[in-house]
Design a protein around this nucleic acid. Structure first.
Length: 224
DNA sequence: GACCAGGCACATC
DNA sequence: GATGTGCATGGT
């Protein structure tokens, strides 16, 4: 294993020891996770759960129903997740794409090589890098690393990336230095979010952060 | 009442 | 190609 891989491993163990397994997206089916990935864009997961509950209560947790639904009706159901007009469009774009190619077979849509699936997801308006990777990792259960703003900030502070690094470069640091295991990538991302929420904030001090013992700059994060 | 939350597309320069 | 802006609810 590379030196970076060893460091990433040790950082993971330290976070795991402090936060425990996070169990993100314990899963009520791949479709729900796909919808959740879009609904959670720049939004608290608690609000997303309310929107998903509304969809279920309306009998709309299936591809055909959402594809057939009018914009206003869908927007109203997902209202608690915020940005409901734009997210209604994004959900429809995604659902329509899957419906046309795969009918109700979301698992067939997801069960393809990562590169194929990722490219196709990214071609859908409303699905960017993070949402595509979230769908691949959490809904399809395939090993692709999800990068978010917390990940970028923590990696930068710990001098594991350059300030100029983009999404794909940050993702590559994890994927080329850790074993390609969906379960590890899943929990690793969740651990980074826990650190980001609780410690590694702009201008925050590092005391009692599980990553404090690893090399870092205190105020090197993005946007600081 | 300000600030934030598991982004993305589009306009503008 | 870099930077700015709109999208919107609910919890702290």
């Amino acid at each position: 294993m590379s030196a970076t891989g060893k460091l990433l491993r040790e950082m993971y163990e330290a976070m795991l020891a402090q936060f425990g397994h996070q169990g993100w997206w314990p899963g009520e089916g791949p479709l729900e996770m796909c919808l959740g990935a879009i609904l959670t864009q720049n939004t608290n997961w608690g609000n997303v759960e309310k929107a998903l509950a509304n969809l279920k209560a309306a009998g709309a947790m299936n591809i055909g129903a959402i594809d057939a639904m009018g914009h206003a009706e869908l927007a109203e159901l997902i209202r608690p997740a915020g940005y409901y007009n734009i997210k209604a469009k994004r959900l429809k774009n995604f659902i329509h794409h899957v419906h046309q190619g795969w009918g109700e077979d979301i698992e067939g849509f997801l069960d393809r090589p990562i590169s194929t699936l990722r490219e196709e997801l990214l071609s859908i308006n409303g699905i960017g890098f993070e949402t595509a990777d979230s769908i691949i990792l959490y809904a399809a259960g395939k090993p692709t690393f999800v990068v978010d703003a917390y990940t970028a900030r923590i990696m930068l502070r710990h001098q594991l990336i350059y300030i100029e690094a983009g999404y794909e470069e940050i993702k590559e640091v994890f994927e080329s230095n850790l074993p390609s295991e969906a379960e590890l990538f899943n929990d690793y991302h969740a651990q980074l979010v826990a650190v980001g929420k609780n410690f590694c904030r702009p201008m925050a001090k590092c005391e009692s952060c599980p990553l404090e013992k690893f090399p870092h700059d205190r105020f090197a994060g993005r946007g600081e």
